[in-house]
Amino acid sequence: MTYDSSAPPSFLSATVTQLRALEAEVQALQAEAAQARALFQDAPHPAFLLSDQGRIVEVNAQGAALLGSTPALLRGRPLVGAVTPDSQSAFTSLLGRVLGGQGAPHSEVSFAGPDGQPLEMVLTASLHVRADGVRLCQISAADVTAFKAAHQTLLATTQGLEQELRHQTARFRQLGEEFRDVMLVAERELGTALTRAQNLLTLLERQTEPDDRQRSLGHVAAAVQHTQGLLTSLKGYMQARMIRARLRPVDLNRVLREVLKDLEPLQSDRDIHLPSVLLPTLLGDHQVFQIILHEYFANALKFTRTRPQTQLRLRVQETQSEYWIGLEDNGIGFNMRQKEKAFELFGRLHPAEQYEGTGLGLAVVRRLCERFGGRAWGEGKVEQGATFWFAWPKEPKPE
Rank of each mutant, 00 (worst) to 15 (best):
Met183His: 13
Gln228Arg: 15
Asn60Lys: 02
Gln102Trp: 10
Ile332Val: 09
Ser89Val: 13
Val220His: 02
Leu327Thr: 04
Ala141Ser: 07
Gly385Ile: 03
His294Trp: 10
Leu368Phe: 07
Ile291Cys: 04
Val16Ser: 11
Leu190Met: 07
Arg367Ile: 10
Arg173His: 10
Thr358Asn: 06
Ala47Ile: 06
Ala342Arg: 04
Leu39Asn: 13
Thr124Pro: 00
Thr124Gln: 00
Arg313His: 11
Val16His: 14
Glu322Met: 12
Gln88Phe: 02
Ser107Gly: 06
Arg188Gln: 12
Trp389Gln: 05
Ser276Leu: 15
Ala21Asp: 10
Ser321Gln: 14
Gly160Met: 11
Ala342Phe: 07
Thr15Ile: 12
Val129Thr: 13
Leu165His: 09
Tyr237Ser: 09
Leu200Phe: 05
Arg135Ala: 09
Ile56Met: 00
Arg305Gln: 14
Leu119Arg: 01
Leu175Glu: 13
Phe179Glu: 07
Lys397Arg: 15
Gln30Asn: 13
His106Trp: 04
Thr319Ala: 06
Met336Ser: 10
Pro249Leu: 07
Leu73Pro: 06
Arg337Cys: 13
Asp132Glu: 07
Thr124Asp: 00
Gly229Val: 01
Gln354Asn: 13
Leu230Gly: 02
Val109Arg: 00
Phe372Cys: 08
Gln290Phe: 12
Glu58Gly: 03
Gln354His: 13
Glu32Cys: 10
Val80Leu: 12
Leu360His: 06
Lys381Asp: 09
Gly76Arg: 07
Gln138Arg: 06
Glu162Lys: 00
Phe343His: 04
Pro396Val: 01
Asn60Gly: 02
Gly357Thr: 04
Ala38Met: 14
Ser89His: 10
Pro46Ile: 02
Val364Lys: 01
Leu314Glu: 04
Asp132Phe: 04
Phe372Arg: 02
Ala38Cys: 14
His286Val: 08
Leu231Phe: 03
Ala240Arg: 03
His350Gly: 03
Ala104His: 15
Cys137Thr: 06
Arg196Lys: 14
Lys339Phe: 05
Ala125Pro: 03
His350Gln: 07
Val255Lys: 01
Leu184Ala: 12
Gln239Ser: 11
Val16Trp: 14
Gln214Thr: 10
Gln287Thr: 12
Glu162Asp: 08
Gly380Thr: 05
Asp285Gln: 01
Thr281Ala: 09
His128Lys: 14
Gln117His: 12
Val288His: 01
Gly385Gln: 05
Gly380Ile: 01
Leu282His: 04
Thr310Gln: 02
His45Tyr: 08
Arg173Ile: 06
Arg20Thr: 15
Met1Asn: 15
His294Thr: 09
Arg135Val: 08
